[in-house]
Design a protein around this nucleic acid. Structure first.
Lengths: 353, 353
DNA sequence: GACTGATATGTTAGCGCTAACAAATCGGTC
DNA sequence: GACCGATTTGTTAGCGCTAACATATCAGTC
């Protein structure tokens, strides 16, 4: 009858303690905690007061055991920027610690290496997988997952696919907005450094750039468009080509921050001041953007938010699958934001160097 | 009698299924899973075979509920480099998904902001806290935690403190080793850029540098030691001072990668090639080290390992506390490694520029 | 005031696992 | 072969929570 002391460690407050304190049944407390509606307002208030007073917090292990909701979620990533990864993980963690989901992390070398990692996840009993870019854009990975009958959610997926559940921003619109801002600052000759051709986002960003230019009746000079590969070095080289022109651009829009940083290095090497002589902007707002000097103006994705949302979508999807209900894939579009730092400025009135 | 279908979702394999399959009791299976020793070898083998065959994997929620081991671990960080953070989180995650620990992440602005974050953790029922640098080095934070009676583990803590449980590398020895390597490459005039004075690691790294120089009978020219603050910009400026000398150093050892990257930018600006004209090395092996060009030679800490170990230490400590047993704080020293990339080379035979 | 249908609370049992105890089996000794 | 302790296995109960069902309470209606 008496509580077995041997099994208990600390003095953990349980739902029973709260129930006794209020004078209701544990079930009522449970209902309040879970925000169910069929509880009298008065009761609810009293319970919440006791929860506060006793400093109760639910035992997630017990909850997920009881609800059978304990999803095991696999996270698959493939050499993303670490800046992306850390924010991604922060978002995932904050959300999954709320839902009590178990996480299993695997990395792989591009879509080709995904099979092994996914099989490992499947074997470990994962109920679903969250994909970070660039894997989220891989139709190959999507196919593998479908064949495995594993639900998945893609984060920052640029490729539109009505069958895939994902959380993303509008890369096209983001690039368009940034370009518009450069034009607003008086820039007319704007160079563009493209991202890796195998990433769908590269294409969307370039199209957004083109669209903004066209809208402002500005010509996109092919000599001012350079191919890059998302690396610092490729940005460095691309900027060298762009800045070798007789009629130099007054601004360069690089498709990510690493390339923008590389472009800044080239500018410095050529004796050009950023932003006094040339404006250089990036995309992604990775750590690079704010560690380099001058700090980069760039486009920011709310990665942590997006990651957190992906966990929720994953949980919904897993639950739907368990209950045998259909699940309609959704494409959630999040807002990006323009971060203006020191690498951009109005076009030099003096006419350059 | 028959299993209630309504409560079950998928077709999850439990310990009972394995037990039935082998023909033993669930408890025996449990013992095998947990590697207890009083199990006949033959039984163990059969059980393991069934585990494999049925693709069983334990339900962590149930386990931690039963064992009362379900630790809630708080992670406190304060503007570390994102590179550090992502690796730190990866290590934490991989380990805590094994032990089924719940995680709660909070960030704060330096040791001053820690109080609020820690109170939040305490209120949320955290059983212990893992500190990432530079918080792990703060005796202020340590005091707060002790006052709260919350166990904690510091990661990458440079300040020696016999009372604090931590996982770290030997910063002194790492700096010493790197310096020795530079000397081995023929460098004699070696510049040093110190880290932020409020970080204990800065001091240890400098002392390691000094020790190696002294051991090689080389003088540490005060003009070749510059104060930095761990930022790119500070490295940029410090390098400018160092390279303004008449008798320029042939190598610069920066106390972290961001500063090393800044130093590289300065060198480029001055028309110096890295590493042909000057060798520049960093410390930490953050993303910066491999995204910049040329990629940096640097010192690498096994951060993920250290983080994973910190979770284990935390669990041990929490368990000890629950059982009322004493817990001896340990200082675990992990091995660092020298990563040689393109920013270092033997001293130029031609005698510089 | 008896009867409805809603709304609010309580009761029971079980999620999967393991601590503690109980029982069975083993090998060795006199 | 009876007895011992050591080793191996089984049994029972309970971790904290919630789904499902059962019951109680409440308006409102005729």
């Amino acid at each position: 009858m008496a509580r077995r002391l041997s099994r208990r460690g600390g003095n953990i407050v349980t739902i029973h303690d709260v129930a006794r304190h209020v004078g209701v049944s544990p079930m009522t407390v449970s209902r309040v905690i879970n925000g169910e509606k069929n509880v009298r307002e008065e009761t609810r208030t009293k319970v919440l007061a006791s929860v506060e007073a006793l400093n109760y917090s639910p035992n997630l292990a017990a909850r997920s055991l009881a609800t059978q909701d304990s999803a095991r979620i696999g996270l698959l990533y493939s050499n993303p920027s670490v800046a992306f990864l850390s924010e991604f993980l922060l978002g995932i963690l904050s959300e999954s610690s709320l839902s009590g989901a178990q996480l299993l992390i695997e990395s792989c070398e591009g879509p080709e290496g995904a099979t092994a990692a996914l099989e490992k996840m499947k074997a470990a009993g994962c109920d679903g997988v969250i994909l970070s870019p660039p894997l989220s854009d891989s139709s190959r990975v999507a196919k593998i997952l479908r064949d495995m009958n594993l639900p998945f959610v893609g984060v920052a997926m640029a490729r539109p696919d009505p069958l895939v559940c994902c959380v993303t921003i509008d890369d096209y619109k983001a690039a368009l907005t940034m370009t518009r801002r450069l034009i607003e600052l008086g820039h007319r000759r704007i160079g563009f450094i493209k991202g890796h051709p195998n990433a769908y986002a590269s294409q969307m960003r370039f199209e957004g750039f083109e669209a903004a230019m066209k809208k402002a009746d500005l010509e996109v000079d092919p000599a001012l468009v350079a191919q890059g590969y998302f690396t610092y070095r490729s940005g460095f080289d691309a900027a060298e080509r762009l800045l070798a022109q007789k009629d130099r651009p007054t601004a360069i829009f690089a498709s990510n921050d690493d390339m923008a940083a590389g472009a800044v290095a080239t500018a410095h090497r050529l004796g050009l001041d950023v932003p006094d002589h040339i404006t250089i902007v990036g995309f992604d707002d990775t750590a690079m953007a704010s560690s380099v000097w001058p700090e980069l103006t760039t486009v920011r994705q709310p990665i942590a938010d997006m990651a957190a949302l992906s966990v929720r979508l994953m949980n919904d999807q897993i639950r739907a699958k368990r209950l045998g209900r259909p699940f309609e894939p959704v494409r959630e579009i999040r807002d990006f934001s323009l971060i203006e730092r020191q690498s951009s400025a109005p076009v030099a009135t003096g006419g350059g160097l």
